[in-house]
Design a protein around this nucleic acid. Structure first.
Lengths: 109, 109
DNA sequence: TTTATTAATCGTAATATTGCAATATAATAA
DNA sequence: TTATTATATTGCAATATTACGATTAATAAA
């Protein structure tokens, strides 16, 4: 069906899945990495960096924006994108909490 | 096209995206959480836990197995699933490295 | 043997995602 | 005003994902 049965799961589970999904594409990873690395925020050489068409790049940027991971400010005709560091920290914390559970019961297989 | 242009990105970027994708579904999050919480490894009450059909559950389990996150051992007619703790730690480390970059250039937007 | 029981696989329908060309929008430059 | 530049949106084609019924395979129980 292609349609996730979100009603079967907790809000926390759905949210975590959504967070992971927002980053589950190499282009979006590449965008984030580039924004972290760049000492200045970026107009859009991002199209060049990714090697994807401008509309495709714009779409990935929108997904990251919708996830709250990046912000964009207008600068003339172009856009300055950068990481939303507050949201980024929230992501890091939530994922860290998920990946380092308090008690791992000893492996039985 | 629905087909990711992996050739545009580095191996590390593609791998990280794949890792995130393996967990980017609430059912797979739920499976992992249940396997962590359960003091014993699980036959498959997982079908009940998820509230999804048996083939659907099996499919999600396969994806997690292919990602290396879980292992299964045969026990009679049933299967015992559990987290692969070595792989799990690798995941935690890689994601942690991604989310806590050494130098965040100060925000400019 | 026959009959459950459990889990994987196959086939398929419905929806989602990825990517791009074409177009639209909006701000600047000439 | 008319370009030019940068970005977003629309529409569409191709592939991927999610879910399930039906079937298969393999062990256990009768």
């Amino acid at each position: 069906m292609g349609l996730t049965k979100t009603e079967n799961f907790t809000e926390a589970q759905n949210e975590l899945a959504k967070m992971l999904k927002a980053l589950a594409h190499p282009a979006r990873i590449a965008i984030i990495e580039h924004l972290i690395k760049a000492n200045a925020c970026i107009g859009t050489d991002l199209v060049e960096v990714l090697g994807l068409a401008q509309p495709t790049t714009s779409q990935h940027l929108r997904e990251l924006k919708e996830a709250g991971l990046i912000k964009g400010t207008i600068e003339g005709t172009s856009m300055n994108y950068c990481i939303d560091q507050v949201k980024w920290k929230q992501y890091a914390d939530k994922l860290n909490a998920f990946f380092t559970p308090v008690n791992f019961s000893e492996s039985c297989c």
